[in-house]
């Protein structure tokens, strides 16, 4: 039983990383109906900025977190401005293909700068608490605490601010939002800023759990986070978080109780099964084709 709770804690930790990344996919989809396949690589850049902050500049945890979040925020905003905005009125597939290209570009710029895998030194003093037999590490505590805090902050921005009101309106009917006097381009840039910032934070959280990083970590982790967003219903913020924790739990529990090689098999089988019965995801809305 203790073993189960220990694994449950690991599931919450992994789910938190997926959730932070999945939010970026779902928010961009929510406002643009576009899937930004470069988002996993934004996360990877966040992990490398974490490496730079921790191993090169020897910064402590909070400045490293701010560095990764700030750097990836700028990367996301710049990518939208340079690569996606010119394609706003092009067929959707053009922007999606472009995002795949941006992802590969980021992987190879990173590879060019870092030909060998990098090791991120511990960002926090490494010790564990005993919680009724379950061992809780400082890394787990920081990951879960920071993720919850960031998700709560996002919740407040989306639901309690004027900008959040505009974002929700854009997700319902983007074409009408300019008639309200809202500068839609700025709001889309804000979406990329928020989503990318969370992706940067996820890079730090991931780097604490799995400290050896290479330029391709964004691919599989990005796919998993994307799957999380789809399970929850892409476009839905609550759905992305729910999907991420479900996926984190399924992955950890599969590895804990079945041969660990089954992990991705089970994960993606779950995705197929869910999509057959609930094509719009758990909390997604049924897409109504506009006439």
């Amino acid at each position: 039983m203790i073993y189960f709770f220990q694994q449950a804690l690991n599931a919450v930790q992994l789910g938190s990383v997926y959730a932070l990344i999945a939010l970026g996919y779902t928010m961009v989809y929510g406002v643009l109906s576009m899937i930004n396949f470069a988002h996993g690589d934004f996360f990877m850049v966040g992990a490398f900025l974490c490496f730079v902050g921790a191993a090169v500049w020897h910064l402590p945890f909070v400045p490293v977190l701010l560095l990764s979040m700030g750097g990836v925020t700028m990367l996301g905003v710049a990518t939208e401005r340079i690569a996606y905005r010119p394609l706003r009125n092009a067929p959707k597939v053009s922007a999606i293909i472009t995002s795949l290209g941006v992802g590969i570009f980021l992987e190879h710029v990173t590879l060019g700068l870092n030909p060998y895998p990098k090791y991120i030194p511990p960002l926090l003093p490494s010790f564990s608490f005993d919680l009724g037999g379950v061992s809780v590490s400082t890394f787990q505590l920081a990951t879960i605490g920071v993720s919850f805090a960031l998700m709560f902050a996002l919740h407040l921005i989306v639901n309690k601010t004027k900008a959040g009101l505009a974002l929700r309106a854009i997700s319902a009917d983007r074409a009408m939002v300019p008639l309200m006097g809202v500068p839609v381009d700025k709001m889309i840039a804000l979406t990329f800023a928020l989503g990318s910032g969370l992706g940067g934070a996820a890079g730090v959280m991931y780097g604490m759990a799995y400290p050896v990083i290479d330029p391709y970590i964004g691919i599989i982790v990005g796919w998993k986070a994307f799957v999380s967003a789809v399970i929850g219903g892409i476009g839905s913020i609550r759905g992305a978080v729910l999907g991420a924790y479900i996926l984190g739990t399924v992955e950890i529990m599969t590895a804990a109780f079945l041969p660990s090689t089954y992990r991705d098999l089970v994960t993606f089988s779950l995705l197929f099964a869910l999509l057959i019965y609930q094509p719009s995801g758990l909390l997604g809305r049924v897409e109504i084709q506009k006439v």
């Binding site: 929700r168 997700s171 309200m180």
Partner: peptide, 24 residues
Amino acid sequence: VPAHERVARGIAQVPEGRRIFYNL
């Protein structure tokens, strides 16, 4: 002048089909 600035200048439109934000 972009669309959103025209609202600030004093043109407000009630669009065809009303286009209420159903989720708000």
